[in-house]
Design a protein around this nucleic acid. Structure first.
Lengths: 198, 198
DNA sequence: AACGTAGATGACTGCTCGGTCATTACGACA
DNA sequence: TGTCGTAATGACCGAGCAGTCATCTACGTT
């Protein structure tokens, strides 16, 4: 059983990460100070350092927590889909919706791409999980005959790129088109690209 | 005729921008100090401030100069192509090659995506030019019957996203596949996605 | 109610960096 | 070769921030 202290600790850590997410969403990763996070969380700066070693640790933990949720959600979304098209449809809609409902998270996601060099989004473990999911689905699609036989890795990153870009556009747009329009466009685009020409 | 002073000024500015590009390539945009740039250019920090108003001005100018070149190159590349497929083929190859030959520039390009929020790559004037080019080509394709009739804006950003992602992968890879493989994949992927199903 | 302690606080320190400017080096010209 | 004006220099300043720690607070225990 969890001790009272452990519960409090968990709660504090989560508050701080939540605060960090909101603040990063507003100011970007590089521009966020520990003071900002502390203020947003309603605690003193020193308190933050009780629960985290460093600014970097706060940010890393925040990323981790936030992206894990989405990846799980996506895995759930298409657990019982039977065709590649269904999967794409569900995944894309889930993803767009998730970002829609949670612009803070989206901005955090963008900010994740900021750290320079080899540590970028590309290398982020959760992004890799995301890609792996996609690759598995593609591979199943190939076996099932839904998807043409092509390089799975390249297909996955290309599809991920299209989804991300459309999503980005939705968020930047002052008033984006109905979500269904974008879902339809993406699924259509992707399906044409991956289906065997008949 | 240019005065001697003007020539010197031009030369200095260019040296400083070149230096900035190399340093940004190594350390990322946010982590580069004016001192770094000055050192790389082999001048004192004060000198930099003779030719530029501020750190931001240096970086903005550096971006501008670097990306203009690529966009021109791309415009040239497909000036006399007759089909959409030819255009894509030429553009993609040119783009991948350009980044291949010039990793510094590539890293600069990545770094451009760093500034947070509305000022991102998306909003960068040169990126917009790039998108406009692509949109024009797509529109011509539609008129010609090469390309199915779909939302031109979405098509353009999707295609741009795929090209960028494949390119990114090439650079991150320790030893990337032959350039032709990637060109073929991208052109194939895109053509399937945009062609009318027959 | 008195006490002890874990937990919270925020002033403080040391450091980094953008930008300035008094001083110096250089080269053109007489 | 000496003089003068312009370009270059780098020590310096002030702002901002990560991380520390002496002090305080509030709550559980007796």
């Amino acid at each position: 059983m969890k001790t009272k202290a452990a519960v409090v600790e968990e709660f504090r850590k989560e508050s701080i990460c939540d605060a960090a997410m909101r603040v990063v969403a507003r100011k970007g990763m590089k521009n966020v100070t520990v003071q900002d996070i502390a203020d947003e969380a309603g605690v003193a700066k020193g308190t933050v350092y009780i629960y985290f070693q460093s600014r970097d640790e706060i940010l890393a933990r925040t990323m981790e927590g936030a992206t894990e949720k989405l990846v799980e959600k996506l895995a759930d979304a298409c657990r019982e889909c039977r065709s590649f098209r269904d999967m794409m449809e569900r995944r894309v809609r889930t993803q767009l919706q998730h970002f829609e409902e949670n612009r803070d998270f989206f901005r955090l996601y963008l900010a994740m791409a900021e750290p320079f060099g080899e540590r970028r989004l590309k290398q982020h473990p959760t992004y890799l999980t995301y890609l792996k999911q996609l690759e598995t689905i593609i591979r199943e699609g190939i076996e099932r005959g839904d998807v043409r036989d092509a390089d799975v890795g390249r297909l996955a990153i290309s599809i991920a790129a299209v989804v991300r870009e459309i999503m980005l556009n939705r968020i930047v747009d002052r008033d984006p088109p109905p979500i269904d329009d974008d879902v339809r466009f993406v699924v259509d685009f992707v399906m044409r690209a991956v289906e065997e020409k008949q």
